[in-house]
Design a protein around this nucleic acid. Structure first.
Lengths: 205, 205, 205, 205
DNA sequence: AATGAATGAGGGTTCATTCAT
DNA sequence: CATGAATGAACCCTCATTCAT
């Protein structure tokens, strides 16, 4: 409805963005929508509307809805995983790495809300599921390596235990979100559980 | 479209079943569809088509799609939880109970496929989420009690640790389903992880 | 669900009725449903359910939904029109007849609720519309005759004026139902309007 | 299915109209359908089919079926009421105003068919009923004021009589449409009935 | 690049009606 | 006479996607 030269109309930056900026903006909007209403809330139309652009424009940046969601997944997990890896790398022990990783997860959730939990947990449309599986494999392998190295756990058992530990991280976030424990308590509990389990698995037959 | 070897020819009126039989049949079909394609694959239409009946018939048995899904959830979790509780009750120790529970889970998956893992894990439509949350609360409380009693873990920590342990059961099933370990190995690993964690949490401050 | 020898189960007379009784019962139920929720509320299923019989039974008494509604219309308008005619016949003047007729209408509405208003007014499914038109023609002709005879109004004008007068009777009922006047006031107003109009139309060119 | 002389071929994409044009087109189609078959004949699907567009397009213009019907009601009654008010305002007396109003009604029906009668009369779905009730209240109040002022009729009686008079206008249209009188005769008859009634109600106790 | 009209398929739901038992 | 399982058509509504402008 506005006709001219508002640099940014209506709260929605509807103008003169570079291709990359506009793409990011789409992802920001999609992130907000997932956080508010889950994946179903992300429709090409809702994203366009919230972004203040026309219905068809999304397709100039993403092949289809699946790709938009996949791009969102990549961006958000990247923003979680890079700091997490960095924080873990700064630690010597498995225990330190676990604690550091959980810390970054909490930080991220604090900063961006339930988005990341949803991304990691939900049964979602195809393109996301594939990527999630791939990401999981990578992270599980890393943790398994640490467990095997530090506690002398056999390869396959280390793999399984890493998978089991990682699977409950979203629940830890949920517990926090629903007030079932403080950040510190939950970090402590989770870290102790992981290390105790790893130690035990490495200890005997 | 199929021409041969359908038990029921394509335009012919379906078998006339009793109310209870038809209801079970619908749930069987829904179960198969969830196993294959997740919740989204369950539409009143897809169920009817697969069941070989007309589109509207489902509504004579379930008020709406949500109720169908809810009924499926109730049936399947009931078939898991009743034997699991029975098996756990027959054991004295937390360790025994965990092992027995996992055993029943494996039995169930062996008999009915990975459906149950999906039911327990996925972020799903409203009616299922509510029921899952409720069920979780009940089971978590039970495990928490055991952990607190047997290992002297404080109430809140026991609650959190139970939640964390239970959250990874679907992943255990997945590991098995994808060949990442035998039933015995996975049972052993998971059980040791749980008991080691509980013991550790109870050991000191 | 009950298996034997309740003479009347569940508030619903579900048993041992003669054909005619059962037919009447269906109409009673349909009447109640129209009064509560309009024509749309009358489905073959809702009628059967309320009557405490099985879904298909209605078709043993009425060819189809339209016929059920039509039979209801006939019965109810008959129960209005016969007393109305009798009451009108007992009066000498047009004014008396109008007053008597309106009195019977009020009595009927008082006894049977908004059913009759709905039957007379609503744009309804085909079979009812036809009958209503026919009924209207009959009554309009009668009133027109009276107007012509008593006030010397020409045939066509008498016909038109009768139609115009009769068309507002449902509104009179509505006014009463919504508390916009007492029975007596509304009867008086309506009667005076009709007689004044008739007198005027007969008076000159 | 039609093969010839459709302006638009059967599977071809429809004319691309502006938003306003398409909206009007939808309303035109809906109007035609109401005129032919009443409200029930207006479904989002029937409108789309008649308009030669795809099933879902209507929802880009109206939130749902109710809104479409409501918009139709607003448009049509607006096109009747604005000229009617103007014509009535140009007259000094109640008689003149009644005659002028009826004249505009006839003009409108002549131009657009009996649609308006249906809109004003029928018991319809919620959104229309509300609006009709509101409109009626406004017009009844206006007429009541005139009757009270010019003939000295008491407030409540004036209200009731106005309601009664207005309720028969659709019937006047029907009489005309079914050839039961000329425009002039019906206008004259209706106007005399109204004025005679008002005069009488004002004359005594 | 961007708009926004339009498509078309998919899925939810309701009911009149039929018919095997 | 009665039951109640089943059909099938008609609607409602939403969205991913295309494409003329």
């Amino acid at each position: 409805m506005a006709i001219a030269d508002d640099p940014i109309a209506d709260g929605a930056p509807a103008q003169r963005l570079t291709r990359a900026q506009r793409r990011e903006h789409f992802l920001d909007v999609a992130a907000a929508l997932v956080a508010e209403g889950g994946f179903e809330a992300v429709t090409m139309e809702s994203v366009a509307a919230r972004a203040g652009v026309s219905k068809g424009l999304g397709y100039a940046y993403f092949d289809n809805r699946g790709e938009l969601l996949a791009a969102l997944f990549e961006r958000e997990t990247g923003q979680l995983d890079r700091p997490a890896t960095r924080a873990a790398d700064a630690q010597e022990t498995f225990e330190g790495k676990v604690r550091a990783t959980v810390g970054v997860v909490f930080d991220t959730v604090a900063a961006k809300g339930p988005l990341i939990a949803r991304l990691l947990r939900a049964e979602a449309e195809g393109p996301i599921n594939e990527r999630r599986t791939k990401r999981q494999r990578v992270i599980e392998r890393r943790w398994a390596q640490l467990i095997a190295d530090e506690y002398g756990v056999s390869e396959p058992t280390a793999r399984a235990s890493a998978a089991i530990m990682l699977a409950s991280i979203p629940r830890v976030i949920e517990l926090w979100a629903s007030g079932k424990g403080s950040r510190e308590e939950l970090t402590e509990t989770y870290t102790r559980m992981c290390t105790a389990a790893a130690r035990d698995l490495g200890s005997a037959i």
